[in-house]
Design a binder for these strands. Structure first.
Lengths: 341, 341
DNA sequence: CTGTTAGCGCTTTCAC
DNA sequence: GTGAAAGCGCTAACAG
């Protein structure tokens, strides 16, 4: 610990500039913020010192006094592929605006995993960010200090502004696809059952069966919890059954990929022996070999829409609920049953 | 939840808690921060109010007084795939620590694109974040107020702590691969020539030729600037030549993918008529059809290493320069010339 | 044990 | 035009 205890590089503050320019702190502030009522000569001198010293106003300090910071917050539980795709859309949409992006993953520390969205919001909202986009929040967010838009909230479209995907329709489409291929024993690997998105997907799965006049075999429904690690066991059981399903609709891509992994381990070929379809269309779905057939959520567009909506709200616009369409993306992991090579 | 509903949506501050608990602001602060020297009864009462009011300490305000915030900053120019892969590694490595991640893209607003790293650092460093990881900075960062580690700095390994990839070795490997396949007219689509990483890759390209006793045809070297949009024109020229190259080594995946796109547009088949190899191994490389053969930078691992190094520096450890190995990833876009189907 | 007093770096009245 | 003063929400001495 005997390193730089000397505090070698204190950041240059507004006071340093003021002293160097021979003016008051207040004057520097005005110059830097382009307020008028400052002599041109003074302004020029101060700017000179600013450049010379490399002064940058502290976002933190100024955010405590200002109302607008020109920063949009994106709060996520974790930087996983789903959130990242969204973030890319947000980033893209904010490119030509005056806003900076601050993405915060505030549930890193174990323990109170739940409520990360409320916590992040309290810690940064109202001060550091002008508005926030919250990715898959699992609690209701009302009475927030800044405008927020929730993307795919797991509690359903309850908050004021939300962007989500047609989970029910997408799931029905996935299941229909399997059924139309001729599959009659199709399993469903559910998501986190405490989340609406997972429930909607299960509903869609059932609806497709009903539409086709087929009965759902409830023993073919397994819990995958949206995470590969949580799904592994259930997948094993599913594939070890004597009357193994010929196809499976996994509630998201991560668990669908896990199905493929386990199936391959068991010596099963996908799609010859088992058809698999996922949900999300993460980059990993396209990157997998064989390419994962899945239901696409337009993540990028959702990020863009979230920005547009938030910006309009920041401008006094009304909240909205935007539902994006889901789309079937055919790749290589589904085919008719028994159509072995 | 019937507390202070008269107030609009002002965030609840430490003062609100103090008043409600009938103690001083300082006492609340001590309780919340677990300082000792507080009566158990007082502590309990305050905590009760905290829960009831849903108080969360403002990261901003406390960061102005505290030295440690338990937040690591990741500064990027933009949230593009390259940065995102890194971010995932960082996120992964920070999972089980007490640190939160704050990713900041501070060059969104057009204009002063350059110097974003310095700007972000000045605006957030020293106060909001305990340390920072900077992704592909293009300026030298010394005299910073907090420990930083640079990932793949485009100015070369000059800063105190840097993680980078063996650009020279990787480029040589890529070119060797093409040459060993039998290609004799191989083009190089350079990156941003003002950046060392791009220079190293060109050097590697030339070295591979020298090793094989081959001369480099300088007219086969084009500028791609690392961005698809900047490369389009040059690629057109390259492919419209009468003595079109049989293979091309693009300085990164984004431009390699653009080569494939343009080639396909021209009616050329990849790899039958043209072999293409990239650099980076972004998810898009694996996701592309045909899969892009490329040189892999272990982005995830680099993120992890950056965290480890930063954490150790935060703990008084010394700076380091870590060079990661590049690796050839064979997919579907390279094959022997003239081996048409 | 607890409250009072200073600020952190900045912006914003409001005098001069 | 410019500066002095009053905070923003919080923590860190220092008194009581």
């Amino acid at each position: 610990m005997t390193v730089g205890d000397q505090a070698p590089h204190r950041r240059v503050t507004i006071r340093d500039v003021a002293v160097a320019a021979g003016v008051s702190v207040a004057t520097v502030s005005k110059v830097v913020n382009g307020r008028d009522g400052i002599a041109a000569s003074t302004s020029a001198r101060v700017m000179g010192v600013v450049d010379e010293l490399g002064y940058e106003t502290s976002l933190i300090a100024s955010s405590m006094r200002k109302s607008r910071t020109q920063v949009i917050g994106v709060f996520v539980a974790e930087f996983e592929p789903f959130a990242q795709q969204l973030l890319q859309g947000v980033s893209y949409a904010l490119r030509d605006t005056q806003y900076d992006i601050l993405a915060y993953a505030g549930s890193v520390s174990a323990g109170d995993h739940a409520g990360w969205e409320r916590r992040s919001l309290s810690r940064l909202g109202g001060t550091l960010v002008d508005g926030a986009i919250i990715v898959t929040p699992t609690v209701n967010l009302d009475e927030t200090s800044v405008p927020i838009v929730a993307i795919d909230p797991h509690t359903g479209p309850t908050g004021p502004a939300v962007i989500d995907t047609d989970n029910f329709g997408g799931a029905r489409m996935a299941t229909e696809h399997l059924i139309s291929l001729g599959h009659r024993r199709v399993a469903h690997l559910r998501g986190r059952t405490d989340l609406v998105s997972a429930q909607r997907r299960e509903d869609g799965f059932r609806a497709a069966h009903a539409d086709a006049g087929l009965a759902v075999d409830d023993t073919l429904i397994f819990d995958g919890g949206y995470r590969a690690s949580l799904a592994t066991r259930a997948i094993g059981e599913m594939l070890d059954r004597d009357d193994r399903p010929t196809a499976v609709f996994a509630a998201n891509d991560m668990t669908a990929l896990e199905v493929i992994r386990i199936a391959t381990e068991r010596g099963l070929r996908v799609p010859e022996d088992l058809s698999v379809i996922g949900f999300d269309d993460l980059p990993a779905a396209a990157g997998n070999r064989p390419g994962l057939t899945t239901i696409r959520q337009p993540l990028h567009e959702m990020g863009v829409s979230a920005v547009r909506l938030l910006l309009s709200m920041l401008d006094g616009g009304a909240t909205e609920h935007i539902r994006m369409p889901a789309e079937l993306v055919l790749r290589d992991t589904t085919r008719a049953p028994g159509a072995s090579a």
